[in-house]
Design a binder for these strands. Structure first.
Lengths: 180, 180
DNA sequence: CAAGAAATAGACCGGTCGGTCTACATCAAG
DNA sequence: CTTGATGTAGACCGACCGGTCTATTTCTTG
């Protein structure tokens, strides 16, 4: 297990989420991580693209963790959604309101290739699947659960966009009232 | 009135919407528009940033036009929403599925300054205001209309994101069933 | 310890970036 | 025809881009 490798992806993710793939220079990532260039290309032979995919994967996993933490102790679906949105709003505030969906901000606007699109598509599917899983657990039929998950996901992506434009996380906090 | 000026903004918009602010080079815009560099800095003294704001404004106005065209002859709110979504899905397909919300794709990921954020925020507000206007016209109370507009807008932003990741405009076409 | 693998370190490279600058063409007004 | 404003044309610039390469240090394993 290598600390440098992870640190690079984490710091790169932090920057990608704010400025997008093309908005971040390798030099900036290296400076933030306190790592020389040689190490980057040792751990990520394909350079920036590898770094972005790794950063997106880390962010994706973190969001799944937040979903679990939000729904596990929830008394019903709406309660879980509310907790989830509040946690995300807090995450948004940590980045000082200059962030969109951590995954799409990182991968959209990157090189227009199949690898990036597939990664995005898969991550989104995993998120919706996990939310649907919890919705089913609260008694919804599979179809209804999938629909609930999709409704939440789509609005959430939009909320991130609007929250970022306004620099105000309340858009995210008010989401449960809109979709439940 | 100057044709070159408009042509530059339109072509720049086409590219920004696909690759984002930092993903597009000035040279690429000039080539597409068939315009030399001197003309660009004559019409847009602040260069790329001016160009992006002008492009976003054009796209924003075009969306307002589509909203009007969708709701003007509609028999009820849901019908208008459906027409609106179909028109946007078509627009998405014209760009071969490589596009997000034309405005946020252009301005998000651009320079992190107040001018860009304000422009985005204002454009979004105008869109939601126009949708709410039509919702009121179909008998919704002002509060309910504002809520309907917000619900549609947020899901729509999300749909664009998901549609782009999947390269499939059907996400947008299926939206009315989810929000009406 | 020896020896090779793993990782760090950063100088260096060609290409492209956004932007400036000067020269020239076009046009309207006197 | 002259003159000044408007717009076109593109050579040119320093800064920065992502990526390569060699040298060195650190870790692992026998």
């Amino acid at each position: 297990m290598n600390d440098t490798r992870t640190k690079l992806a984490v710091e790169a993710g932090f920057l990608f989420q704010q400025k997008g793939y093309h908005g971040v220079g390798i030099a900036e990532v290296l400076e933030r991580a306190g790592v020389p260039k040689g190490s980057l290309y040792h751990h990520y032979p394909n350079g920036k693209a590898d770094l972005a995919l790794a950063a997106a994967e880390i962010a994706a996993t973190e969001v799944l963790r937040i979903i679990d933490a939000s729904f596990d102790g929830a008394r019903d679906y709406a309660y879980g959604v509310t907790t989830f949105c509040y946690k995300l709003a807090k995450y948004f505030d940590i980045h000082e309101g200059r962030i969109g969906c951590p995954v799409s901000a990182t991968l959209h606007g990157g090189p227009d290739n199949a690898a990036f699109r597939d990664a995005l598509s898969n991550i989104f599917a995993r998120w919706m699947g996990r939310i649907a899983h919890y919705a089913e657990g609260f008694g919804q039929t599979p179809d209804a659960a999938a629909q609930s998950a999709k409704r939440l996901f789509l609005s959430l992506e939009g909320s991130w966009t609007l929250a970022r434009a306004r620099g105000d996380s309340n858009v995210i906090r008010q989401l449960p009232a809109l979709v439940c």
